[in-house]
Amino acid sequence: MGRRRIEIAEVKDPNTKQVTFSKRRTGLFKKANELSVLCGAEIAIVMFSPGKKPFSYGHPSVDVVADKYLRKKRRSNVVRANVRENNASNEVGDRLSQELSIVQVHTEEEHKKATELDMREKEQEASQFSQNKELLQSSPVLQRMVEDYVDAVEVSECMLLLAKEAVIGIPHRPITKRRRRN
């Protein structure tokens, strides 16, 4: 069937939107990688999925490119002809700085959540270990109790076999020899 043109419009279905985002994201990152390799460009891409998860790509890294962009020192011998361009680039720099700080806040929050989950997991492992240890320690005690019970049952069986008279209320019948009839 081949490739065909699609209309560029927002996708309404959330599942389709997520799938489209994932495919387009990998394509965009691939193109950015090719551009950086072919042209030697330094590239940084930061995007948020429909589920509000951050994704980034950078060559050599997002931090290096963002720092270079945000903290670039203006050379004194270069004169800007247009003041609007300077203001626009400052606005873009400010906006990117704000977005970067938002991404950093999200990253810190996720790091805190991960640390908390790790602590909970370690606590659960410790409690399971102590429970397993208690079971292991109680195992010999239970084993000994079962052995004692089995011994008591064996003793009771032997006592019943050795008794001359029935103990449980079964009447004692004298043993008589029966003759066979031919």
Rank of each mutant, 00 (worst) to 15 (best):
D63C: 08
K73R: 11
E42T: 05
A163E: 03
S97Q: 07
L162P: 00
N33V: 00
R25P: 03
L117H: 10
T16W: 00
K113A: 14
R80P: 00
G51N: 14
S56L: 04
C158Q: 14
M119S: 12
Q128A: 11
L38I: 08
E134F: 11
S22H: 08
H111M: 06
E116L: 07
V11S: 07
L136Q: 14
V78Y: 09
D148F: 08
A9C: 06
L142E: 10
E110C: 06
N15S: 11
R4G: 14
F129E: 12
R5E: 02
V150A: 13
I45N: 03
V83G: 00
R24Q: 05
R173Y: 07
N82T: 12
V141Y: 10
S61Q: 06
K52A: 03
Q137C: 00
Q98D: 02
L117E: 12
L35Q: 07
N132D: 09
L38C: 05
L160Q: 09
E165H: 05
T115G: 04
N33T: 02
M119Y: 05
K113S: 11
F29I: 03
S138G: 09
L35D: 07
R181H: 07
E85A: 11
T16A: 12
R5V: 01
V79N: 15
I8F: 10
D148Q: 10
V83R: 11
V167K: 14
S49R: 10
A41H: 03
P140N: 03
H106V: 04
M1Q: 12
E85F: 08
E110Q: 11
S127W: 05
Q124M: 09
R144Q: 12
S127E: 15
A81V: 07
N86L: 13
N182I: 07
L38Q: 14
A163D: 00
